[in-house]
Simulated assay, not measured.
Amino acid sequence: MLYLITFDHAVFTSPLSVGELLVKQEDGEAGDQLSFARMQDPIHPDNVLQPALRNGFKHPEGLMVDASLVDIMSQPHLLEQSSASQLNLESQLEELETGTVPVQDASFGREQDQLARDARLDHGEALNWANTARRDLLERPINNELQKHWDAKGN
């Protein structure tokens, strides 16, 4: 899948892969002949623009970039959102608990607590990996030709 960020920072998608794009370009098809649809789910334009400036492709309306690079940029935020949702759910479940736990259910409760601690550790590790991948992507140099294309009509 490809993303297109237009000069006015609108974000669109196409089901084409980078490989398919390169074949079309090799066959002489211009980028403006590709069909893009407006994003249904909101995505931060900077999560598209930053990788597009480093590893993207020129388009008459802006820049195109492979979706996997946008995913790298978006992953830390998505993990933080899922963690917040999980903590909110845990809080709601704790409010529902009333009274003492019967002895026969005590081991189940300890097991659930351990699973929750393990999940938080897994989340922390995943978040560290996602932040590292995002930082590595942003450390790549900006492609001067793509920057000139963007600056000519964008910002």
Rank of each mutant, 00 (worst) to 15 (best):
E20P: 00
I5Y: 15
F57H: 12
V65T: 03
F36C: 03
Q50C: 05
Q40C: 01
L121I: 11
L2W: 06
A37E: 05
L87R: 14
V70E: 07
L87N: 11
A10K: 11
G124M: 09
L69F: 12
R117H: 07
E90N: 09
P15E: 13
D32N: 12
P76L: 05
S107P: 01
N47Q: 07
G56M: 09
E97C: 03
A30N: 06
V65D: 11
G124Q: 15
L89V: 05
V70F: 06
P15V: 07
V11I: 13
Q25M: 12
L34C: 04
P51G: 03
D71F: 07
L96G: 11
S83F: 06
F108H: 09
A126W: 01
V23H: 07
E125T: 12
F108P: 00
F12G: 02
T13Q: 13
T13G: 05
L34V: 03
L16V: 01
I5H: 06
D105C: 04
D105K: 15
G124C: 02
S82T: 07
G62L: 11
R120C: 02
E94C: 06
L78I: 12
D41K: 10
V48P: 02
V65Q: 12
L78W: 11
H59P: 06
Q92T: 02
A126H: 07
D105H: 04
T13S: 07
F36K: 09
N88G: 14
G19T: 02
L49P: 03
N131F: 00
E26I: 00
G19D: 10
H44W: 08
G124L: 14
F108G: 10
L22Y: 00
I5V: 15
R110Y: 11
R120K: 14
R117I: 08
A106N: 00
G28Q: 01
L89F: 08
H44A: 10
S14N: 15
D46P: 00
A116N: 12
L63P: 04
D32E: 13
E61Y: 07
A84P: 03
W129T: 08
F57S: 09
V70H: 02
A133E: 11
R38A: 15
P42N: 02
E90S: 14
A116Y: 08
D66F: 05
P76K: 13
L22I: 08
L127K: 05
N55R: 15
Q86E: 06
E95F: 01
L2D: 02
V103T: 13
F108Y: 02
I72N: 01
L53M: 10
S85K: 06
L69S: 04
L69R: 10
H59S: 02
S74N: 13
L21C: 09
P51Y: 11
G28R: 03
W129S: 03
S68I: 15
A37G: 05
F36H: 12
M73Q: 15
A116K: 15
Q86W: 10
D118Q: 14
S17T: 15
Q75V: 00
E95L: 15
S14C: 03
